[in-house]
Simulated scan of single mutants.
Amino acid sequence: MSAPVLEPVSVAEPRRPAGRAAEGRRTTPARFDTALGWSDRPGVSWVLRIVLCVIALAIFAAPFVTIFAGALSRNPSGSSLSFLPHHPTLLNVKVAGERGIWDYFANSLVIAGGGLLLQLAVSVLAAYALARHRFRGQALVLTLFMLTMMLPEEVIAIPLSLVLGHVPVVGLDLKGTVWAVILPLGAWGFSIMLLTEFMKDIPAEIEEAARIDGVGEFRLLWQIILPLCRPALGVAGVLGFIMIWDQYLLPLIAAKDPTDYTVTVALSILRTDPQVGSGVVLAGAVVALLPSLIVYLLLQRSLVTGIAAGATKG
């Protein structure tokens, strides 16, 4: 007697509701949690959050608005704040250009661009050596990098001026050239420490698998390590550019002629010039402010992502 054949039982899929009801069930409204809470309906927390945002915006935006308003005013007052230009004009920008502000601006762009590229290259190579390799004296090297962050510029100004005037071994005089400003900025302890700590958290298994596949040292750094360090590179790039752009003492001691100055040094010259008013100085300040503001606005996502990634590690 043959056994009965059991046919497979098919389980019917549940019917999905159609129309707007289906869309409402499939989608769940996202909730954005903040320290003050979140609610679509007006309430005490909603009003308090709006008030705090307005206060923060007024505190941080008021200086920028005042500078722009003064730069476009014919006769700005230095004793009172104004958020709107009085008798709007571009005469202050024109006078600042006649005083050579655009030449100083070009010097700053060359120095900031070259210095940032050199700084990132040195920081990446130094951080890769400190984070992914072990060698004698590694702790001493890290300590030296930290010490460079603790020394103020005023302490090393005179020795640095002597070195730039007569570079040891080669005997070159770099004063009056852009290299006198770019080379001292090539190594920044902050970016080296930042990238070092970020590279230490990359799993060693990734590097071991790449070496088994025959990946060389440079290719490993370029194609594997660096893409994983994009958040840290964004932070180092933004802060490094602002640090180089805001340099004042180094361009001052590295210059041989006033034409070698950067825009930050030019602002002090405009300020002491009795033939120009405060409106011209504010116009020069706007010119000096724009690159840092543009770089921050373009790379703010990378900056926030890098800071958040560093805060959540461990």
Rank of each mutant, 00 (worst) to 15 (best):
V47H: 04
L84W: 14
P227S: 08
I50A: 15
V178D: 10
V44N: 11
P42L: 06
T305W: 08
L72V: 10
I158Y: 01
S108I: 06
L226A: 11
L84Y: 06
G97N: 10
T34K: 04
L195K: 07
G306R: 02
V280W: 04
F198L: 03
L160A: 01
T264G: 08
R74M: 09
V124G: 01
I253N: 02
P29Y: 12
V287Y: 07
A283L: 06
I206L: 14
D257R: 12
A131L: 07
L174H: 05
A236V: 11
R136G: 13
L270F: 11
P42I: 11
A187L: 15
L233Q: 01
V276E: 06
Q223V: 12
P85F: 02
K175V: 10
V5A: 15
A22G: 15
A3V: 12
A58Q: 08
T272H: 11
M199P: 08
A12Q: 13
R271H: 14
T259N: 11
P76D: 08
G176F: 00
L226P: 06
S108W: 00
A56P: 02
V54F: 08
V287S: 07
Y248D: 08
L160N: 01
V122Q: 11
M193G: 10
M243G: 14
A157M: 11
Y128K: 03
R16K: 10
V170Q: 09
L183D: 03
